[in-house]
Simulated assay, not measured.
Amino acid sequence: MLEETFLLAAVGHPVRLQALVLFERTPSSARELGELVGLSPSAALYHVRKLADAGLVEPHEIRRRRAFEERVWRTTTNGWGKLERLLRAAVPPGQRV
């Protein structure tokens, strides 16, 4: 039960579900996720780390960006886009997922 609770907490935030959908489609960095969802790179990285702690994403590659390295993430499983579509279909109009 603890593992299921941990998993639900990991995907329970809208940004994290968006991250899973993005990383499933195209491995991306926390910076790119932040640009997509309107968060700072550090705030986006916080959510990515929660997903990594749950084993839902993993590093794919490391890119060199000027004076630092940027980690690119991908999902460890598939089906996140389908889950997002199912959740959106279940939500009454006017409410957010």
Rank of each mutant, 00 (worst) to 15 (best):
V48K: 02
V11I: 14
F68Q: 02
E84T: 11
R66N: 14
S28A: 13
G81P: 04
F68P: 01
V48T: 10
R31P: 05
E61D: 06
V72Y: 08
L22N: 14
K50N: 09
P92F: 02
Q95N: 00
V37S: 03
R71L: 09
P27D: 07
F68E: 00
A52C: 00
A9G: 13
R25V: 11
A43L: 15
L56G: 01
T75K: 08
T5R: 02
A10V: 06
V48Q: 03
L36S: 10
L8Y: 12
R96A: 12
A67F: 06
V97P: 06
R96L: 14
L86R: 15
R88D: 12
V57W: 02
L22V: 09
S42Y: 14
E32L: 05
P92A: 06
T5S: 05
T75I: 12
N78W: 14
L87P: 00
D53Q: 10
A89C: 04
T75Y: 08
R63Y: 01
G94A: 04
A30L: 09
G38S: 02
E32R: 00
R74T: 10
S29Q: 04
L39R: 12
S28P: 00
S42M: 10
R65K: 09
L20T: 10
P93K: 13
E35I: 09
A90C: 03
A89N: 10
L7R: 14
E24P: 00
G38V: 09
E70Q: 12
G34K: 10
E69P: 05
L83W: 09
V97L: 11
E35N: 11
A30F: 13
L8T: 10
E3R: 15
L8G: 08
W80Q: 09
T26N: 10
A44F: 01
E69D: 11
L22G: 13
R31T: 11
G55C: 01
E24Y: 01
T76L: 14
L8D: 14
E58V: 01
R31A: 13
L7H: 03
V15Q: 05
R25P: 02
T77V: 04
P92Y: 07
L22Y: 14
E35Q: 08
R63K: 15
E24Q: 00
R96M: 11
S28K: 08
A9Y: 14
A44I: 02
P41F: 14
R66H: 12
G81I: 02
G79E: 14
M1P: 03
L8N: 05
A52M: 03
G38R: 04
A44G: 00
E84S: 15
T76W: 07
Y46D: 01
E32P: 00
L51W: 06
P27L: 13
A89Y: 04
G94I: 03
G12E: 03
R63N: 04
I62M: 09
K82C: 07
P14D: 02
R31M: 09
A44E: 06
L36D: 07
E4L: 13
R49P: 15
L17D: 11
H47D: 00
L2G: 11
R16V: 05
E32W: 01
L8A: 13
T75F: 11
A9T: 12
W80N: 05
R66Q: 14
V21C: 04
L56P: 03
R64Q: 15
A19D: 14
A9S: 13
G12N: 00
R64M: 13
E70T: 12
G55H: 05
P41E: 15
V21N: 01
L33C: 04
L7T: 04
P93T: 09
